[in-house]
Amino acid sequence: MTKTTLIVGDKVRITNTAWTDGKGGSGFSFGDIVEVVEAHRNGHWPIRAKNAAGETGLLGYNEIEIVEQPAKEPTAPMTKSVLDLLRRKGAITSLEAQGVLRCRQLPARILELKRLGHKIVTELKADPTGQKYARYHLQQAV
């Protein structure tokens, strides 16, 4: 794995032999998916992780691959407003975003949200006059 910054809550798969933290745990096995409970900045190891049984262990960055990272919250005010509206309504169009939020670049804000890890699906539609438009749907975690 290339060095990257992990945060607490990330899910990683073990791709190499791991060792325990010396507290009597049985350690992890190849292929296990574990949750990061402590990670150091700038890709320095070790990473403390726990498995489904609650056992913790230390891992090096060269022993894991990222499986799932939770979506990050946006910091830009308009992007944050778009996400809030999507969470309230479930779906939004550019016309709605412009009227409610004064957001004139909804596709750009949607792209920012996707890059932050939010699952947004684009549905292409046409109004009664034949004018095409996109409706963006936020996929909620199950």
Rank of each mutant, 00 (worst) to 15 (best):
I92W: 08
R104E: 12
R88C: 00
E38A: 10
Y61D: 08
K72I: 03
A126M: 07
K50W: 00
L106A: 01
R102H: 08
T20H: 14
N62T: 05
V34T: 07
I110E: 09
V36F: 05
M1I: 06
M78Q: 10
F30K: 09
A49S: 10
D127N: 15
D21Y: 09
G60W: 03
E63P: 00
V37K: 09
R104S: 14
A18D: 09
P128S: 13
L106S: 03
S94C: 06
V34I: 14
A76V: 08
A126E: 14
A134Y: 09
G43T: 08
V8F: 04
A71W: 01
M1C: 10
Y133T: 09
A49Q: 01
A71F: 01
Y136L: 08
L101I: 01
D32N: 15
R13T: 12
P128I: 09
V36A: 07
R135Q: 15
A53H: 11
Q69C: 04
V121N: 06
R115V: 03
L106H: 04
V12L: 14
L101E: 06
V67D: 01
I92H: 09
L106N: 02
V142K: 11
T56Q: 13
I47S: 02
V142M: 01
R104W: 07
A53E: 13
V12P: 03
V142E: 13
R102D: 10
S81T: 04
H137K: 13
K89E: 14
A76R: 11
G22S: 04
A76H: 12
H118K: 02
P128C: 08
P77T: 12
I64S: 05
A91T: 08
H118E: 01
S29H: 14
A39Y: 03
E68R: 11
T20I: 00
P77C: 01
G99N: 15
Q105N: 10
K114Y: 05
G31K: 12
E65K: 15
A39D: 00
P128Q: 10
K119L: 09
L138R: 02
R102F: 05
V82F: 04
T5S: 11
P74E: 00
A76L: 06
E55F: 01
A126K: 14
I64V: 13
T79Y: 02
R135L: 11
E96L: 02
K125L: 14
G9K: 12
H44A: 13
L86E: 01
E35S: 12
K50M: 11
T56P: 00
I110M: 07
K72V: 03
K80V: 02
E123T: 06
I33G: 00
R135Y: 00
Y61M: 11
R88Q: 09
K114A: 02
V82G: 00
W45A: 13
K114L: 04
R109L: 05
E35T: 15
T2Y: 09
N62Y: 11
G9Y: 10
Q69M: 15
G25W: 13
G24T: 04
G9E: 12
G31R: 12
N62D: 14
A49F: 06
L58T: 04
K3V: 08
P128N: 11
G24N: 05
L101F: 06
E55G: 04
E63H: 07
V36L: 08
A76D: 12
E55C: 02
